[in-house]
Design a protein around this nucleic acid. Structure first.
Lengths: 234, 234
DNA sequence: TATATCTATTTGTATAGTCAAAAGCGGAGC
DNA sequence: GCTCCGCTTTTGACTATACAAATAGATATA
């Protein structure tokens, strides 16, 4: 493994593991060069690559800092709903419909590849944009990965946003599907039973452990994902 | 603009414009270094960045080549269906349901931001995976951007694949929605009227001109988009 | 013929430096 | 107080060079 790659992955690991948090200053180039016994060019290459990936921000004279989690880097990088809603200039609020601490069932445990007796916080939450139901959020938070969730009521901060603060960087897997609204879903979303809904499932890991598993169900007539792509990205 | 950036964008432009096509060999580093009157390091940096973006492939001794259009770089980078199907080991075939040359209507022209009288090839196509209908493809190909489409029957090659050969690199905008199947759609997809369907709309440009606009409608119970993300990507 | 070896080419990584641009900081002068 | 000037730190871009690794193609050998 090259020095450049070692620096890259070391810094990346520190950020993803939460060791270095958004806003933290990371050592300046000559310090890392001394630490890794290499030239400044090599460090510079690693940090520039991290900057290009959006993990750090670099500023002359002041240094390099861990970036805030990326918003909207790709379409799939769908952020917490309230952030999205605010960005677009809409009024967003949410209601906690259910909140309980329990242990994972056998079927779910298998689905998440987590032990069956793992303690989790199960949340159900309704998001309302401009006065209309916009999404049901069904979420599982692994309490051994995020113990502080046990004492959080989520009365004033949506779970997605709260988790973004707690666990800013992570690895995620997404699935997008179209599903028909069942009776309960239709009632909550104030739509028809059988209405086409867009379902986004996201499982998030940190250090190989599941942090959270969430399914957003959006009424098909009120929501879509969109994005522009370009080979060059950015 | 730095030399590094100039090389990067110059090469990128040549690829996206179709000047250099997939498989083409691009000048070796010392040639570009001579052309741009810079050191090989600078060229190397630019080409490495392009390689990281997946636009070129670099091999020692043999040189650097324009890559094949990226498959599966992000979830949104959903490729031509037959390619996807083959990759997953499924049997794929397709039928052309309709094919006609006409001029864009007022409403559509506005939607595509193209002149209302533009000549287009309108296609409707059914994709069948493992014997079951998997998607309806409704496509518009701009004939002034891709004149050769006029003489192509698409009997043996699906339009998406054909376009990928014609116009390998492009800029694209995607929209994902959930929609209910209307009567026609349901009949073609052999599903129920009202069934939740996943709709993927993609508009593709090259050199600022629309190349194609396509909507894929998948039965919700037979299709999903999935992908893993990671701050580092790759 | 088949296989092993050599050679030339091209990319990959790294060094040790230079100069420049950005920007925070402190002090001089008003 | 405020503004301007210069100093310093840090990143950014670049050079010229070196050597290593991969490998296609030619050559030599069994």
């Amino acid at each position: 493994m090259s020095i450049y790659q070692r620096i890259f992955t070391d810094v990346e690991t520190k950020i993803i593991s939460g060791d270095w948090r958004p806003g933290d200053r990371i050592p300046v180039e000559h310090e890392l060069a001394a630490e890794y016994r290499c030239s400044r060019m090599t460090v510079s290459k690693a940090l520039s690559a991290l900057a290009e990936r959006g993990m750090i921000v670099r500023r002359r004279k002041t240094g390099s800092f861990v970036a805030s989690p990326q918003i909207d880097r790709t379409v799939m990088d769908i952020q917490d709903i309230s952030t999205e809603a605010e960005l677009a200039g809409h009024e967003h609020r949410f209601e906690i419909l259910a909140r309980k601490v329990e242990r994972l069932g056998e079927a779910e445990a298998q689905q998440l590849s987590e032990p069956a007796d793992a303690e989790v916080l199960r949340l159900q939450c309704l998001h309302i944009v401009d006065g209309r139901p916009n999404a049901i959020e069904r979420r599982i938070i692994m309490l051994d990965a995020v113990p502080r969730a046990r004492d959080e009521s989520f009365a004033s901060i949506p779970p997605g946003k709260w988790l973004l603060d707690e666990v800013p960087w992570s690895k995620a897997k997404h699935i997008i599907r179209a599903v028909s609204a069942d009776t309960t879903t239709a009632r909550i979303l104030q739509t028809e039973r059988g209405e086409a809904c867009l379902s986004l499932i996201r499982q998030t890991w940190q250090n190989g452990r599941t942090v959270t598993y969430v399914e957003f169900t959006h009424p098909g007539d009120r929501f879509q994902f969109a994005g522009t792509f370009h080979p060059m990205a950015n």
